[in-house]
């Protein structure tokens, strides 16, 4: 299989496989979470579950409780990583072309300079987060192989994407193949690893907020 055939495969069959695993796995997992369900509380509500749930789904992205230096580091680096990841994923013109091809609609792109900065910050933050995971006692205790695997799976698309835009080290066709393949690995692993938090976090937040909302607690 030559470079072109490999590229065609990752853009075609490979992507179909990855999309199938991702969508099937994620829809299964998220719906399953909802179907496990919970007992409806018989206590008298003091507030609205939905108001609390929806508020927390949104609000928890921004709440910054007082933190220790290690906590602050995690929050700042975590934000940079996620922000950079989303900016590059959703606002690079080439990616929007992909979404337009799949979903039939697109949106305006951000200038390349912004994308570049976001990508570099995101990559830097990820390296810092990995280093922190290796030295911080709390994170070391909590970490298992999955944490390192998912780190690599998230890092590679960013790295290969960054290299691709500049044709660093390899030819375009090779880099494009690597980039798409790395995204496919990410998609395939996502439903079965902690990467599932990309969706489940909103279910978690809803439940958390619903319990608070039910009790009428203004968070």
């Amino acid at each position: 299989m030559d470079a072109q055939e490999l590229l065609i495969w990752v853009r075609g069959a490979g992507l179909q496989i990855a999309a199938a695993v991702f969508v099937l796995g994620m829809s299964y997992r998220m719906l399953h979470l909802l179907l496990i369900g919970r007992k409806k509380s018989l206590a008298e509500a003091r507030g609205s579950e939905w108001a609390g749930g929806l508020r927390t789904m949104w609000q928890r992205s921004f709440v910054l409780p007082k933190l220790s230096p290690r906590g602050r580091f995690t929050v700042v680096a975590g934000y940079l990583f996620h922000l950079g990841f989303f900016v590059t994923l959703f606002f690079l013109s080439q990616h929007i072309a992909l979404f337009r091809a799949v979903f039939g609609f697109g949106w305006p792109a951000l200038p390349r300079g912004v994308i570049d900065i976001a990508a570099v910050l995101s990559l830097g933050a990820m390296v810092a987060l990995l280093a922190h995971r290796l030295v911080d006692p709390v994170k070391r205790l909590l970490s298992d192989y999955q944490d390192y695997l998912t780190w690599a799976l998230s890092f590679l698309p960013l790295l290969t994407g960054f290299m691709l835009l500049r044709e660093i080290a390899f030819e375009y066709v090779t880099l494009l193949t690597l980039h798409i393949a790395s995204v496919e690995l990410l998609l395939i692993a996502a439903p079965f690893t902690k990467l599932a938090h990309m969706f489940s976090t909103f279910i978690s937040r809803w439940y958390n907020g619903a319990v608070m909302g039910f009790k009428g607690i203004r968070t």
Binding site: T74, V75, K139, L142, S143, K194, A196, H197, S200
Partner: peptide, 9 residues
């Protein structure tokens, strides 16, 4: 448990 990313916060 699905959502925990082991951030340690």
């Amino acid at each position: 448990f699905t959502s925990c990313v082991h951030c340690g916060l």
